[in-house]
Design a binder for these strands. Structure first.
Length: 260
DNA sequence: CGGCCTGTTTCCAA
DNA sequence: CTTGGAAACAGGCC
């Protein structure tokens, strides 16, 4: 389920590894998820401890003693999971980090869209992969400059990781719902006021979702996403939510509150 | 069986 | 060359 708030919750979760013993070995169950050279990854992690974590958008970096980083990118269905005994090894574990203490950290990923790799420098990684600043860090001016320059549907632009990283499908829908803007509006046709509103709601939705550690049951009642996952109605007017496709992604909206 | 799904990359067309 | 849209990738669920 990993968009920015989910990955932030994962980051806090894996910080448990910072107090762990060194890595005894790494175990790869599906080669597909290993983006680096496997031999090299093994050598670089052997005997290392984790000393810090960093998250940019949906990307989670874990720093080794050597100051190299292990990157977890979760795709659509990934998550980290600690466990002790092999009998309870999580289903769909794709890579396992074994600590000398016996604790294990599994990179779980049902659909194989997630990736693990070794990164020398985060700054270099950001440049090479066009990973923008975290969506919680972007300035209003930069946000508005970027969005207003695009002719694509505004929802599509909100998903651009290279400008402000971390916004995924449900957050984009929620932000546009809160701002009362139709997801198919062309970004460059939005007024300054609308752009400011989108920025404000983006920060607000992210702030709340992070605070609730991405547990959507704990989200406020005015969030549309709860209804979306429950197949329900608009929290404002009670009308049935509509489902359309924008940029190839399922998109939920209220036609009353988000007129074009 | 067909359709759907929280993400990214790649390919193709304009 | 740039932009944007669609397809591809996998597996499970309804």
């Amino acid at each position: 389920m990993p968009e920015l708030p989910e990955v932030e919750a994962y980051r806090l979760y894996v910080e448990e590894a910072l107090f762990e013993s060194p890595i005894q070995k790494v175990e790869l169950l599906r080669e597909k998820v290993m983006k680096s050279d496997w031999k090299n990854f093994q050598t670089a992690t052997q005997g290392q401890g984790f000393i810090s974590t960093k998250r940019i958008g949906k990307y989670l970096f874990m720093e080794l003693d050597s100051h190299q980083w292990v990157l977890f990118h979760f795709g659509m269905t990934g998550k980290p999971e600690f466990y002790q005994n092999e009998e309870v090894k999580p289903k769909h574990s794709r890579l396992i980090i074994h600590f000398e203490s016996g604790l294990k950290l599994a990179f779980v990923c049902m659909r194989l869209f997630g990736r693990v790799e070794l990164v020398e420098s985060i700054e270099q990684y950001q440049t090479d992969h066009q990973l923008g600043v975290d969506a919680l860090e972007v300035s209003e001016a930069d946000f508005i400059d970027y969005v207003s320059a695009s002719k694509a549907a505004v929802k599509t632009v909100l998903l651009h990781q290279k400008a402000f990283a971390g916004v995924g499908n449900w957050i984009a829908d929620e932000v546009l719902f809160q701002a009362g803007i139709h997801p198919e509006e062309k970004a460059y046709q939005l007024s300054k006021k609308q752009l400011q509103s989108i920025f404000k709601e983006l920060q607000e939705v992210l702030r709340i979702a992070v605070e609730k550690q991405a547990d959507y049951h704990a989200f406020p009642d005015h969030f549309m996403v709860k209804e979306r996952w429950g197949d329900g109605n608009c929290p404002i007017c009670g009308e049935e939510l509509q489902r359309i496709v924008v940029g190839g992604r399922g998109t939920y909206l209220c036609e009353q509150e988000q007129s074009k």
